[in-house]
């Protein structure tokens, strides 16, 4: 049984001009100890997915359809109270603006202890002390800094403290939403290494949400590319990044600058198109208008899932036809 099984998830928001679909028919599975990367541009719905897994959708957001099974139990069927017990202990989150996730008037250590205590009321004082030392050890912050205030930490240390907090209750799944966006390249590199280390040591699974392909490629084994609320391509890292098939993925990859000058993957590089059409939910392929390979039928019929390998598939009627 996979750790997380998301099936046909559709999420919408109520707005003044009626409901707006943010995520449509998203399905994926995550095994224990694996990291899944969700890549996409801003507004593609990747953060919404993360929020829905924690039951933290904004007031006007709602799940229209689908199931989220965590260890076989349906998260959507849980009450708010049951969810609260679930959150942090089983699934925790590293937020986008991690700098602001720490309360400036409390010591960092106290905030983490608070989190442990709320979710594990049976823990003794010594046990909690032991836990927090272990956590600080894990994220490489010296023990004597445990009871400093957030402003005494550097940006990278704050980020690591937030990671420690997310791990404080030994969750099985961590959702990291743009955990390195505001950080320096060097600090970002440290954080990614740390996350990979922790994954290895504790065997936790993770979902890594980012707009930065490079970051996701380093940290995750499985990749999901999203465009306008839909998954357009998913597969193993080696498959999606080395041999991408969906024209959007190819466009995304060829607009990604790397230090070696060009990004190397095996596909004909089409001209990059970035102005996307607004009516993706009209049924036909929303990328067709921007797509350099689109054929007449792309504009008239909905796109289809094509399987390239058992683990690699793309939502495009043209992909995989050459094989």
């Amino acid at each position: 049984m996979p750790l997380l099984d998301v099936d046909n998830l559709t999420i919408a928001y109520h707005t003044r001009s009626g409901p707006v679909t943010a995520v449509e028919n998203v399905s994926f599975r995550l095994e224990r100890g694996k990291f899944l990367g969700i890549v996409g541009e801003s507004g593609c719905g990747k953060t919404t997915i993360g929020m829905s897994l924690l039951g933290l959708l904004p007031e006007n957001g709602f799940v229209r359809e689908g199931r989220i099974l965590f260890e076989g139990s349906d998260l959507l069927a849980l009450s708010q109270k049951e969810l609260q017990a679930f959150r942090w202990k089983k699934i925790s989150m590293i937020f986008q603006a991690a700098m602001n996730a720490l309360n400036p008037v409390h010591r960092v250590g106290d905030q983490i202890i608070e989190a442990i205590r709320i979710h594990n009321p049976e823990f003794s004082e010594e046990r909690i002390q032991k836990e927090i030392k272990e956590l600080y050890d894990l994220v490489d912050i010296p023990e004597q800094r445990i009871f400093d205030y957030p402003h005494q930490y550097s940006g990278g240390m704050k980020q690591r403290a937030v990671i420690a907090m997310a791990l404080s209750c030994r969750p099985d799944l961590v959702i990291a939403d743009e955990p390195t966006t505001a950080l320096d390249v060097i600090v970002q590199d440290q954080i990614i290494r740390k996350i990979k280390d922790i994954q290895r040591q504790r065997g936790i699974a993770g979902i890594f949400i980012s707009h930065d392909i490079g970051v996701v490629a380093e940290a995750c084994q499985d990749i999901m590319v999203m465009y306008r609320g839909k998954i357009v391509e998913q597969g193993k890292r080696e498959e999606v990044f080395v041999a991408p098939v969906h024209p959007y993925t190819i466009a995304l990859l060829s607009s990604h600058l790397t230090i070696d000058g060009v990004f190397d993957f095996h596909a004909d590089k089409p001209e990059v198109a970035c102005d996307f059409s607004p009516d993706f939910f009209a049924g036909v392929c929303g990328y067709a208008e921007s797509c350099s390979r689109a054929e007449a039928q792309c504009f008239t019929a909905p796109p289809k899932w094509r399987e390239i390998t058992p683990t690699h598939k793309a939502l495009c009627r043209l992909c995989g036809q050459n094989d």
Partner: peptide, 12 residues
Amino acid sequence: KTLINAQPRFSY
């Protein structure tokens, strides 16, 4: 050198 090594690589 540190800066260059810190750049994300598709090293897999």
